[in-house]
Design a protein around this nucleic acid. Structure first.
Lengths: 187, 187
DNA sequence: AATAAAATATACTGACCAGTACAATTAACA
DNA sequence: TGTTAATTGTACTGGTCAGTATATTTTATT
């Protein structure tokens, strides 16, 4: 049934995050998921396809979570930009945070022709566009510029936190974002 | 002779950057280097040891290059902080730039117990300390804070450039750094 | 030139990898 | 209950991996 498919996706996502993608064999995935390779290859035609689906689901979950948080906790558009880093902090400091999936995937698949790398790159671009949307609603002129700067801070903080838990990077990223947002609103 | 050892290090560094560490076998390394596994294992006791040496040399080369550039092109301490991102840009936009080694290595070896991950994490910390030194000489009060913020921008820009060449991320990182440095000098 | 020592090349080991052929089992329906 | 179809388990394939034992060549020393 589809529950097994979901379980495989979940287990694969978990193992990819904790052990790395290339270091995780399909045998390990099916063993932990409590099924067999035959079933896995019924739902996914190849390991690469499984990787792509894991990445897609992970990114969609993140953007949905963030968007919901922003919509539930803010009234005006400008407020979203201000509270953005509060929720990013909440996401990063969650006990099961193990780094941003598309950042790590791009590192494991450096070849720009590779499908996994291309999807990762696209998700990064997509996230920047989302930030640009927030900036635009808040009345920032150089939306692309601020979006890029904020994405650097966010991805940098995620990278730092993945490298060393409890790095505190997000605290300083938040301070930096306040300065940069203020500067962008004036300019 | 030691030339072969150097050649192996160089070739391994190149392959690790372009294909990823886990995806590069020792057979490939020795083939490209024009030698054999027997020789490789004479100079390095294991693949992990080779990885560690490649990382160490890469990071040392980077810090030496950056430090020389800063010393050659500036007179006063405060100037170094201002020109820092010019040289970071020069480094990132070099045609053979393929991402920061320790960032990618940490992604490929997510386990914090792993020796490669630990070295990567240490190099990141070391780089932050270097930035804190620059901030301190320039008269910044919260040296650790500014150093962390600048490292987020730099590592974020490197990450972005690795993900998509010609992203232009460094341009906006530079602008952001000017704002943050100015703010830190005032505070 | 003879001998010893070091470096190199060849060929292999056991382990693991992604993916599959085929057999066993379960479920669906008559 | 008997037959068919779909799903799951077992066992295997060819390929690659890190690492090594042994054989060959080169180099250094006398």
């Amino acid at each position: 049934m589809s529950t097994l498919r979901a379980k495989i996706l979940h287990v694969a996502s978990d193992l990819f995050q904790t052990r790395g993608i290339n270091s995780t064999g399909v045998d390990t995935i099916v063993a932990v998921a409590g099924t067999t390779k035959m079933t896995l290859y019924k739902y996914f035609h190849s390991k690469e396809e499984l990787i792509l689906e894991v990445l897609q689901k992970g990114h969609q979950d993140f953007e949905t979570w963030l968007n919901d948080k922003l919509n539930q906790n803010t009234k005006q558009p400008a407020e979203k930009l201000q509270k953005l880093f509060d929720f990013i902090e909440e996401w990063i400091t969650a006990p099961d945070f193990r780094g941003m999936a598309f950042i790590k995937a791009a590192a494991e698949f450096p070849n720009e022709e590779n499908a996994v790398h291309r999807l990762s790159s696209d998700q990064s671009r997509q996230f920047k566009q989302y930030l640009a949307g927030l900036a635009s609603e808040a009345g920032v002129k150089d939306t692309e510029g601020l979006a890029l700067q904020l994405s650097l801070l966010i991805e940098g903080a995620m990278q730092a936190e993945q490298m060393k838990r409890g790095s505190g990077a997000i605290k300083y990223a938040k301070k930096a974002s306040k300065i940069l947002i203020e500067s962008a609103l004036k300019g």
